[in-house]
């Protein structure tokens, strides 16, 4: 953890995870025009936490989201859960890479937009690999990969932009790690 970047308290992590689960559920309730393609708005929360409070907090929030989300939808330990977990792991992996990059090259930093595009593509790749290798070993599925990656890139840029806008509006953190609200 870099200095001046306090990590979140347990309660705050739970709070952000709850928001992420909420976003995830709302998204699940909206029918998608193309089956299997979702905007991934819950990732906005992960990105905000990553950009403001660092990788460790983002890993916690995302892990909780996947776990609680699947328990609520009832897909815990079912294929859907493993798909979400695979996607989340790879996407967190790329966020770790982005953290490393920013630490190594502080003068050429990646912002939340680039990280979002990268993690969205990684998310879809992770899900696809698992689906293709384990659940549906089906040569035809490979033809869908380019389409999925293109959608992921576009949606990743969109969610990244959204996260950036939200970060600009999010009040600065106080020294003790709580966000100060201005209500």
């Amino acid at each position: 953890m870099s200095p001046g970047r306090p990590s979140l308290s347990d309660a705050q992590i739970a709070g952000f995870a709850a928001i992420a689960v909420l976003v995830h559920l709302v998204e699940a309730g909206i029918p998608s025009p193309v089956p299997g393609i979702k905007p991934g708005l819950a990732n906005v929360i992960t990105l905000i936490v990553w950009a403001r409070w660092g990788l460790r907090s983002a890993v916690w929030v995302t892990g909780l989201r996947v776990l609680v989300g699947s328990l609520l939808v009832g897909s815990f330990m079912a294929p859907g859960f493993w798909l979400a977990a695979a996607g989340a792991s790879l996407s967190l992996g790329t966020l770790a890479l982005a953290t490393g990059w920013n630490r190594a090259l502080p003068r050429l930093p990646l912002t939340v937009v680039g990280a979002s595009a990268l993690s969205a593509v990684a998310h879809v790749s992770g899900q696809f690999l698992l689906a293709w290798r384990v659940f549906v070993p089906h040569p035809g599925l490979l033809h869908l990969l380019p389409l999925l990656l293109a959608m992921a890139l576009a949606l990743g840029l969109a969610t990244g932009w959204l996260a950036q806008r939200l970060l600009q509006r999010l009040p600065a953190t106080t020294a003790d790690g709580y966000t100060s609200t201005h209500e």
């Binding site: 912002t111 937009v113 680039g114 990969l145 890139l153």
Partner: peptide, 24 residues
């Protein structure tokens, strides 16, 4: 978007393009 972002997004576009060439 920072310079690094732009470079990264360009690389990602390249990857998606390559996947189209290979599998689509």
């Amino acid at each position: 978007m920072s310079l690094a972002d732009r470079l990264l997004v360009m690389v990602l576009f390249g990857v998606v393009g390559l996947s189209f060439a290979a599998f689509w």
